[in-house]
Structure formats: structure tokens, C-alpha cells
Design a binder for these strands. Structure first.
Length: 577
RNA sequence: GGUCCUGUAGUGCAGUCUGGAGUGCACGCCGCCCUGUCAAGGCGGAGGUCGCGAGUUCAAAUCUCGUCAGGACCGCCA
């Protein structure tokens, strides 16, 4: 070993020992010809070394320093430092690597540095305490999850990265097949199909910390490549799956924060939409949606009389905070999410309204609104009237916009959202219903009778896990019965022949005895980000990509040799104009 | 595909609205001084394609158009 202990480990108990520490020069402070301090840093912390000033070491030089640990002279201890009571003196310095001056400081001042500069020099960024902590949080999350799964008898299985292209879902990354020019593998959007086949294969309980790839536009909470805890279980009902996942995510949170979060709340999808206007409600704050539809059953106000659903939210004491400008912005916001408009009411002292539409509301209606919201002077009320889903979703967005704390701000509020609809909306191109989760999702047993007559009202045995308003992941009980699968396909506009062509390799195995099974997958990047107190998953990924997908450090993606392309049977077209 | 915001020294910024010499600040860097500092201190110094390209103008970091790059969001992400 080159070192006897780590920089951040030195304590008074080491006084008198001769030690060797290795690390980077965090800072050098000179005091004349024969005294200089070198703060040596590694991942564990910083220790002060007293060296002869004739040694030429500069920031970020990599050193091995050997010397004797002693108490610092009285009055010179540093309580900011874990090693602040001691120092290494009479130190001899071995330069292991010289270094050019760093592009940005290695402390928290670099938090303000342009992210592109940090990414271009990520190997420097990673030296910083923040990134060291974040990657270690992530490692702890992985470890906790793995141990929780092992403890519950799950088997870790790796599944292929090279798989057939399937047209459903996210845009795939594809890989040319050298031995079959013109044919391509697809990289997995998720191991979904394989994990169900593992159930058919009798694995009983599978998990994998799996890399998934989706060629969709990047966001603060999305990368091309992301990692999820992927799991599947046989002979289970919904509660069994939720219980198994709960252990893992609660363990992970406890391991990182030291505090075990509350039990995971449960709410049906319908309740979540009704109460919070979102299928991933943030339960850290209230401001729930209030039902107003009955109040306006016979209203003369045209904007309300034709709407199927009228709801609102109340901003306590918000009247003063929201001037005309902010309200106009909120209205634009509401429109961008699909509302035709937004009604705002400021509650006055006599519980009447200051509002452009006050004159259209009857006295009874106004009183009913005040009572429905339990409103008081100074409150701001925002109302949306539209079809049910639009009303809920728009208010959900407004609620988040107005009341939501930063995602990483505690406490941690896990939530199960259950009973998602089996079908959502209609595909714009085919006119057929679209699957809410995926086409292999089991309908709710109480609703199977309704598949034929009222498919849109059929609930699925599908569920999402939400943490502080971020969707962590989703899962479902799968269909294991061929007849039922055919029925669901039929409603998705997929014929037997088509199903066979598209999913044959997946469906045929189910003829040979498929156990009832279900599973789940959640994003480890998102979970780790929230637990690390970051609101952007790039901060907990060692080498992430910016929104453009162009890696400023490696310059990927890059062009390849013509010879390479010839071998693959690929010719690159000039860019479309 | 769309909306909004950003781009000035190695890094972070001011200057842009209201055009007048790259005018400036902090950190970092280089040199000298300094024996108890710890985001040390003092003195001196170097460092600029104002993202790029056009246009307007006597004159553009500043105004206009285009373009590139980055960010947040909408679409998209079964």
C-alpha cells in the first residue's frame, strides 16, 4: 500500500504516528522561505501538512506525503475540518503527478460553473465533494436495493442488450447487424419482454439493475441511457409486488438519509386525478382540487354552463401575491396545457370576489364557491371548466406551479398510484385506443366484463410509484391467458395475425404454461437524485449527456470510417434539407 | 417539431435597454515578499475572435437578421 490511511481519517488518536497519505493538493499556503502548508485531499477529506517551502507543488498535484502526526499548536485548530485538530509535520513530499491549473475550483464554487464546462472536464468535476457524495449515494442506493431483493429470494439475471426491434413505445436505438446487412438489433427500452419469459421459464422471482435506452428528447429527469430496478414475480397479486418494491425503496431511503420514510401511501389513479390533478401527485403540500361542478348545474355563465367538469384550487392568502401580470402568465400556462381559459377570483373582505367574471356569477353561486373552498379574505381561487381530464390536469399543473417545493426538499413522500385505466385516449393515427401501460397489462378482474361494451372505463392492474411528485416507475400484473390477451389486442386494433408477427416470439411461449405473474421497474437515477438532494439526474450520473445528446468530453457520437460502414452495408445520406 | 432564457479573460460576473477605443470587478494563473495559515496576506504582472456570420451605422459587446452551442419546459417518453 502506498498510504497508511486516508486524508480525512487523521485524528488526535494518531498523534505521534508516522503516516503516509496520498491525494491531490487542495491548497498551498506559503509563509516565507521555510514554512508552507499543503492541504492534501482525497475522497475522505482534507488534511493539513506542514512542508518546507522549497518544495514546488501546486494545486491538484498528486502527492504522497509522509510525516509525523501531531496536535496543532494551540490556537491554530480548525473546527471546519474533520482533521482540524492535527496536522502532519516534518513532512516529506513525493510528487506522483504534476498537474496543470484546474479549469475550475474543486470546491462548491464550481456549483456555479457552466455545466458544459463541468461535463467537458468531468474527471475534474468528479473530484469535488458534491459529486463524490452523489456517486456514493447512488452506490448505496444500488447496494440497498440489491440486498433487499436478495433477501426476498429474487434471482439476479442479466438480459440481452441486443434484441429485436419492436414498434411499440419509445423510439429505439438500433445497431446494425454485420452478418445480416440491412438488419438491425434494437437496444432495450426495458427488459420487459425478457423478464416475462423468465417467469415462463420458472425463475419465480427475477430482478436486475438494468440499463435501458430510449432515443427520446432529454430532460432534467431523462437521459438516453438510464438505470432501473427491474423485477418480476410469479404467483402474486398486486399487493405482493407493491410490498416487495416497498422494502427496496424504503431501505434505500433509510440507508442514504438515516431515516426510514413513512409507509408508502396508496391512492387510486382516479382519486389522484380528482384530488391532485395528476397521476404523480406531490403529497408534500395540500392545495387539493375542489369539486365545483354541481354548483353550476344551472348557471347562466356560458364558460361554465357547457363544461363537463368544473374544479378549482385555492391559494391561501394568494390574492396579494398574484397581480394582473402573474395571473395572465398563469392563464397562458393553463392554455398551454389545453384549457380554454382560467377564471381567477380574489376573495374580498365581505367574501365577494374581485374578478373579471364576478358579474357573471349569481349570489348563490358565489356563496357556494366560498363555502366549497372555505375561503377567507385575501385568498386566491383559480377555476378551470372543461372536460374532466383537462380540468383535472390543468389544475394539477397550476397546483404544482404555485405550491410545489423543489423536488429534493424533504420530507420523502412515497406514494402508490393504483388502478390506472387499461386504455388511455386514442391513437391519433390509427383511431384505436392506446394502452395505458403496455398491451400485456392485466385488466382489473371486476372490470373484465366491461371490456367489450365500455373499454375506456376498464381499470388495469397497473400501478405507479411516485416520490415527491416524480414518477419513479410503473408496473402491472400481466396477462397470462391467451384468450384475454387476444381480447385486449382486439381493442387495441391488433389482429391475431399482426400480434403473431409483432410479438410472436413473446406470445408463443405463453402456450407452454405461463404462471400468473406481475412486476415493476423504477428509475434508480431519479431515486438517487432525490435522495442526494439533486433536482437533475445528470448530477448523480458519472458521465451524463446534455440535452443535445452530444458528449462534450468524448465528442460522441462521431463519424465512422467508410470501410466500417461498407462492412455493415450502410450508406449515409446527405442531411435532409 | 415548438415556447422561453443564456453565451464578454481559465472560472464567475458587470457593461447591452439608451451604439462612442476590450472600460471593469472577483476568483484563478505567473513573479517577488512573508514562520501559523486554513476560500491566508502584501506588491507587481500576464491573460479577450465580447459564441460565429451577415446587415444597419461615421462608429456595434451593445441595434437587426441568420446561425451554432447550452438550459428549462411543451410535444414525445407504450
Amino acid at each position: 500500500m502506498m498510504r497508511t490511511l486516508r486524508c480525512g481519517e487523521l485524528r488526535t488518536e494518531h498523534v505521534g504516528q508516522t503516516v503516509t497519505v496520498c491525494g491531490w493538493v487542495n491548497k498551498r499556503r506559503e509563509h516565507g522561505e521555510h514554512l508552507a502548508f499543503v492541504d492534501l485531499r482525497d475522497h475522505s477529506g482534507v488534511v493539513q501538512c506542514v512542508v518546507d517551502n522549497t518544495v514546488d507543488v501546486r494545486s491538484e498535484y498528486v502527492l504522497a506525503i509522509t510525516g509525523t502526526v501531531r496536535l496543532r499548536p494551540e490556537g491554530t485548530t480548525n473546527p471546519e475540518l474533520s482533521t482540524g485538530e492535527v496536522e502532519i509535520h516534518e513532512a516529506t513530499v513525493e510528487i506522483l503527478s504534476a498537474a496543470e491549473p484546474p479549469v475550475f475550483p474543486m470546491d462548491e464554487r464550481a456549483d456555479g460553473v457552466d455545466e458544459m464546462v463541468r461535463l467537458k472536464h468531468r474527471y475534474l468535476d468528479l473530484r469535488r465533494a458534491r459529486m463524490q457524495r452523489n456517486l456514493r449515494v447512488r452506490s448505496q442506493v444500488n447496494r440497498s436495493i440489491r440486498e433487499a431483493m436478495y433477501a426476498q429470494d429474487f434471482v439476479e439475471v442479466e438480459t440481452p442488450l441486443l434484441m429485436p426491434s419492436t414498434p411499440e413505445g419509445a423510439r429505439e436505438f438500433i445497431v446494425p447487424a454485420r452478418q445480416r446487412p440491412g438488419s438491425f438489433y434494437a437496444l432495450p427500452q426495458s427488459p420487459q419482454l425478457y423478464k416475462q419469459l423468465l417467469m415462463v421459464g420458472g425463475l419465480d422471482r427475477y430482478f436486475q439493475i438494468a440499463r435501458c435506452l430510449r432515443d427520446e428528447d432529454l430532460r432534467a429527469d431523462r437521459q438516453y441511457e438510464f438505470t432501473q430496478l427491474d423485477m418480476e414475480m410469479s404467483f402474486v397479486d398486486v399487493d405482493d409486488v407493491l410490498d416487495a418494491v416497498e422494502v427496496a425503496v424504503l431501505d434505500a431511503a433509510e440507508a442514504v438519509t438515516g431515516v426510514r420514510p413513512d409507509e408508502v401511501a396508496r391512492m387510486t389513479w382516479h382519486d389522484a386525478m380528482e384530488r391532485f390533478g395528476s397521476d404523480k401527485p406531490d403529497l408534500r403540500f395540500g392545495m387539493e382540487l375542489v369539486e365545483l361542478t354541481p354548483i353550476f348545474a344551472d348557471t347562466g355563465f356560458k364558460a361554465f354552463s357547457t363544461a363537463g367538469s368544473i374544479k378549482g384550487i385555492k391559494v391561501d392568502g394568494g390574492a396579494a401575491d398574484y397581480g394582473r401580470n402573474k395571473l395572465d402568465n398563469l392563464t397562458d400556462e393553463a392554455k398551454s396545457f389545453g384549457a380554454k381559459g382560467m377564471v381567477w377570483l380574489k376573495v374580498e373582505a365581505d367574501l365577494t370576489f374581485n374578478s373579471p367574471v364576478a358579474k357573471f356569477l349569481s349570489e348563490d353561486e358565489s356563496r357556494a364557491i366560498v363555502s366549497a373552498f372555505d375561503a377567507a379574505e385575501g385568498d386566491l381561487i383559480l377555476i378551470i371548466a372543461d372536460e374532466w381530464s383537462t380540468t383535472c390536469e390543468v389544475l394539477g399543473e397550476l397546483r404544482n406551479r404555485i405550491g410545489r417545493p423543489p423536488v429534493s426538499e424533504g420530507p420523502y413522500k412515497y406514494l402508490w398510484v393504483t388502478d390506472f385505466p387499461l386504455f388511455v385516449g386514442v391513437d391519433a393515427q390509427t383511431g384505436q385506443p392506446r394502452p395505458g401501460h403496455h398491451p400485456f397489462c392485466h385488466p382489473h378482474p371486476d372490470d373484465i366484463d366491461k371490456i367489450a361494451d365500455d373499454p375506456m372505463s376498464v381499470r388495469a392492474l397497473a400501478y405507479d410509484l411516485v416520490l415527491n411528485g416524480w414518477e419513479l416507475g410503473s408496473g402491472s400484473i400481466r396477462i397470462h391467458d391467451a384468450d384475454l390477451q387476444r381480447q385486449v389486442f382486439a381493442h387495441l386494433g391488433i389482429s391475431d395475425e399482426e400480434a403473431d408477427a409483432r410479438f410472436g416470439f413473446f406470445l408463443n411461449p405463453f402456450r407452454y404454461g405461463a404462471p400468473p405473474h406481475g412486476g415493476f421497474a423504477f428509475g434508480i437515477d431519479r431515486l438517487a437524485a432525490i435522495l442526494a438532494g439533486e433536482d437533475n439526474i445528470r448530477e448523480i450520473i458519472a458521465f451524463p449527456k446534455p440535452q443535445s445528446g452530444l458528449d462534450p468530453m468524448t465528442l460522441a457520437p462521431n463519424e465512422v470510417d467508410d470501410r466500417h460502414l461498407d462492412e455493415l452495408g450502410i450508406r449515409v445520406l446527405p442531411p435532409a434539407t
